[in-house]
Design a protein around this nucleic acid. Structure first.
Length: 270
DNA sequence: ATGACTGGCCGTGCCAGA
């Protein structure tokens, strides 16, 4: 796709867990058109790299970088600008066969590095899956530290499977002992912020009881029983440009929806 | 109402998700 070198203005960066891109392609295409973003990180595409619907998404004007896997997980990065320095998997992922991280340098007028994240769920906790979640978060922290040393604008956007605060879910009594809210999970998330990263929604909005996920079960959407687990963490150079965050809640009310909705950070001029 | 789902897969139930 051609990069319009004359373009200046806001840069819209989104994250969205689509819960299978094949089962939902028409919906995904409609939502992508409506949210009008420059960069979109997709999670749970649930297809192998070669099976990604490149043509349909390129038709919307996006370049695609895809790190796929059969049946489970899988992440993709869509960009209206050229992509460079594509990385698939976190450093230290040797022997980890789960496709949960993709990163690229987005060649906007001011280049921005973007990492797309599908952090492990971690249930049941305690157990092997929870240990994997925490070790994955530790590897992410180590990589974030390396990126921060570059002193460049970057965003780590994705499904963090982390409820940061009690008010980021509909009833903390229900979620307190879940892998998404356990102290060890929150502390690992907090360590990312202590490195110097800014959680975009918290910084730009911060309201309680704003959600990005509603379970398919038990009428959770109709009852407003949601949780906020999809986040964008910004480097200082990106956080300085943060203007607003939008949660595209409308996507949850569509036919055949994903259980997550897009979360969008708007960055102003560099 | 102690109820209520969805996607992928060589599958007619099970695993995984959150």
């Amino acid at each position: 796709m051609a990069d319009n070198g004359a373009y200046t203005g806001d840069m819209r960066v989104a994250t969205w867990n689509v819960n299978s891109i094949k089962a939902r392609l028409p919906t995904v295409l409609d939502v992508l058109k409506e949210i009008d973003c420059d960069v979109i990180c997709l999670q749970e595409i649930k297809c192998e790299t070669d099976a990604f619907p490149y043509l349909e998404i390129e038709d919307l004007g996006y370049n695609c970088a895809v790190h796929g896997q059969k049946s489970y997980n899988g992440v993709a990065l869509l960009s209206r600008h050229p992509l460079e320095d594509i990385r698939k998997g976190l450093p230290g992922d040797d022997g980890d066969d789960q496709a949960r991280y993709i990163e690229a340098l987005v060649l906007a007028e001011t280049p921005v590095r973007v990492g797309g994240i599908y952090l492990p769920n971690g249930n049941p906790a305690p157990g092997d899956k929870f240990d994997y979640k925490i070790s994955w978060m530790n590897r992410l922290e180590a990589h974030a530290r390396e990126l921060l040393a570059l002193e460049e604008p970057f965003a780590l956007a994705g499904d963090y499977n982390t409820i940061p605060r009690d008010v980021d879910c509909w009833d903390i009594a229900v979620w307190r002992d879940d892998a998404l809210a356990l102290p060890e999970t929150r502390q690992a998330f907090q360590r990312l912020k202590w490195l110097g990263l800014t959680e975009a929604f918290e910084a730009a909005d911060g309201r309680a009881h704003e959600y990005s996920f509603w379970d398919y079960q038990a009428g959770a959407w109709q009852k407003g029983h949601g949780i906020r687990i999809d986040h964008l963490l910004l480097s200082p150079q990106a956080a300085d440009r943060l203007e607003s965050v939008e949660i595209f809640k409308k996507a949850r009310g569509l036919d055949k929806p994903s259980d997550h909705v897009p979360v969008i950070a708007v960055l102003g001029d560099a």
